[in-house]
């Protein structure tokens, strides 16, 4: 079985400073991994480096995605291959409606994979279903991407994009931050809806509370750019109780 993601000894530099210092992680199909760690431990750097954000310079190690060299692909190609990054701070794009954005993105990914455009009625039917699942207001999709959206609405919008794009690997960077209990439940429903035996999920989080709704198979502790401890879901509970200092 080919792993969805296989990271070996990854080193990443940002603004001249080494943040990831030899990170190794393997995600097989069907697995849900959670990465926890202090502020500044390198969690978001990992997410951004995997997605190919400019300014995240890989200085060592390897990352393969479904057997391909992930790091050789451009950002949009990684997305076309099925890698989705749920942004910690989703960006506003004035003047571009959510509907237009999502349709353009979906069709760009389909084009990358050699598929034809999704026809408008199918697209609309799909998006209306997902909007309902996430308890969102469809009218908001006619508005500009994330403009005037609250923090919670933005995170739901990320989930909507994920459900529409149906990625093979979703890396969710603090998708749970800034959510109230109800929103957290709904976002969790979205994450669970994408969970399947042929997909992988990487949840980056500070808190155990998301993991109550989305049960991980593995929990990793990231410290100073390396994974220092790996366990099952009970590790998250242990962290919450004792703090990072005592556990890792």
């Amino acid at each position: 079985m080919t792993a969805i993601l296989n990271i070996e000894d990854l080193k990443v530099r940002v603004d001249g400073k080494e943040i990831l210092k030899g990170l190794t992680l393997k995600i097989n199909p069907g697995e849900v991994h959670a990465i926890m760690g202090r502020n500044g431990s390198g969690k978001s750097t990992l997410a951004n480096a995997l997605a190919g954000k400019p300014g995240y310079e890989v200085t060592g190690g390897k990352a393969s995605y479904k057997g391909k060299d992930l790091l050789a692909l451009k950002a949009h190609e990684r997305a076309g291959e099925g890698l989705f990054l749920g942004f910690q701070y989703p960006v506003e794009i004035p003047g571009v409606s959510n509907l237009n954005f999502l349709r353009t993105a979906l069709n760009a990914q389909r084009k990358y994979r050699g598929e034809g455009d999704m026809d408008a009625p199918t697209f609309l039917k799909n998006i209306k279903e997902k909007v309902a699942l996430l308890d969102m207001d469809y009218e908001m999709q006619k508005r500009a991407v994330n403009v005037g959206f609250s923090g919670g609405e933005r995170k739901r919008n990320e989930m909507l994009q994920m459900l529409m794009l149906q990625p093979t690997l979703a890396v969710l960077d603090e998708t749970d931050s800034g959510l109230d209990i109800d929103a957290l439940k709904i976002v969790s429903q979205g994450i669970n809806a994408i969970r399947s035996p042929d997909r992988g999920l990487l949840l980056i989080t500070h808190y155990q509370r998301l993991l109550r709704y989305v049960e991980p198979d593995f929990v990793h502790v990231l410290s100073d750019g390396k994974i220092v401890k790996t366990g099952d879901k009970t590790l998250a509970l242990e962290l919450e109780e004792k703090g990072y200092a005592d556990v890792a």
Binding site: K53, K74, A75, A79, I93, F101
Partner: peptide
């Protein structure tokens, strides 16, 4: 914005064009 669009699968030049139109 460009990176956000690229992360969703839109090639860079197309993303630029979309932003200019907006």
């Amino acid at each position: 914005s460009l990176f956000y669009m690229m992360q969703r699968g839109i090639p860079k030049e197309e993303a630029k064009a979309l932003l200019v139109r907006a």
